[in-house]
Amino acid sequence: MTTFSAEHQTLLDSVPAGAGARIEEETVDYDHEGTALEGYFTHDAAITDPKPLVLVVHDWTGLREYPKARAQMLARLGYAAFAVDVYGKGIRPEGEEAPAAEAGKYYGNLPLLRARVQAGYDKAIADPRVDASRVVVIGYCFGGSAALEFSRTGADLRGVASFHGGLVVHDPSDAKQIKAPLLILTGAADPVVPDDNVIAFENELRAADVDFEVVTYSGAPHAFTLPGIPPYRPKADARSWQRLTGFLTEVFA
């Protein structure tokens, strides 16, 4: 099993595994149009029936420990979790400038961003251990934006959740393609997603009659759920996780 850093282990330990649980994990090689990708799958092997699937999209530093810890938290709740790899095998940028540059490639090419999430979705739903009719996509920061973009493809999803993700308004709008309810968890002190941006995004969804909920956390800046960095806000993190678990219970029912 993955050995997590102290802050990510603390995060994982906030969701105790059930009695008799057997959490298993594996690296999953797949590709998108010739680009090698390396995802991460985890589930409770003690549950033998196909399980609802949660796709987890990483933040702008790539598929590192953090999305794997979140995936294991979901596995402890009885879901199958697949952390997708948007960037490509071995591409895990560090520092400040490199992650911004890598993420910028996809913000500047939204069809490619959607396609990379699609590749992970296609790989994950082919696994017999998952229930392909019950899929939710979630994401953090860059991954939140990616999850919302993927919803615009009209994919057959039960729900989509974005944690402090960028809210990209489209003109012309393609929001009518969204079939799944959206849960948007954002910070009230996030300069990346100011109030005007939230309102503009809501207005686009309203015009398309999309089922959405926006929850704003006071004092929470961008990246408020990522432990080990200054923007982390434990209260907003705990509250947003609780809202996610309620959302999953609702949409998977």
Rank of each mutant, 00 (worst) to 15 (best):
1 M>Y: 08
4 F>P: 03
7 E>W: 05
12 L>A: 04
14 S>H: 03
15 V>S: 02
15 V>F: 03
16 P>E: 04
18 G>N: 12
22 R>S: 13
24 E>R: 14
26 E>C: 14
27 T>C: 03
31 D>G: 15
33 E>I: 00
34 G>R: 02
34 G>F: 11
35 T>Q: 15
38 E>D: 07
41 F>W: 13
45 A>F: 05
49 D>Y: 03
51 K>T: 04
53 L>G: 02
53 L>P: 00
54 V>F: 01
55 L>C: 03
59 D>F: 15
60 W>R: 08
61 T>G: 08
65 E>H: 05
70 R>M: 10
78 G>T: 03
79 Y>Q: 05
83 A>D: 10
85 D>T: 13
92 R>A: 12
92 R>Y: 09
95 G>D: 04
95 G>A: 06
97 E>N: 02
98 A>N: 02
100 A>M: 14
103 A>N: 05
105 K>T: 01
106 Y>A: 11
107 Y>Q: 12
108 G>S: 05
111 P>D: 11
113 L>G: 12
122 D>Q: 12
128 P>M: 09
136 V>Q: 00
139 G>W: 03
140 Y>E: 14
141 C>V: 09
144 G>T: 11
147 A>I: 13
149 E>Y: 01
153 T>Q: 07
154 G>N: 05
154 G>Q: 04
158 R>L: 04
160 V>N: 06
166 G>D: 06
174 D>A: 07
174 D>G: 11
174 D>H: 13
176 K>R: 15
177 Q>N: 15
183 L>T: 00
185 L>C: 01
186 T>E: 14
189 A>P: 04
192 V>P: 01
196 D>C: 00
197 N>V: 15
198 V>W: 03
201 F>Q: 07
204 E>A: 06
205 L>V: 02
211 D>A: 00
213 E>S: 10
221 P>W: 05
223 A>E: 13
225 T>L: 06
226 L>M: 10
226 L>D: 11
226 L>K: 15
228 G>F: 13
232 Y>Q: 08
235 K>W: 08
236 A>T: 05
240 S>T: 01
242 Q>M: 05
253 A>K: 02
253 A>S: 06
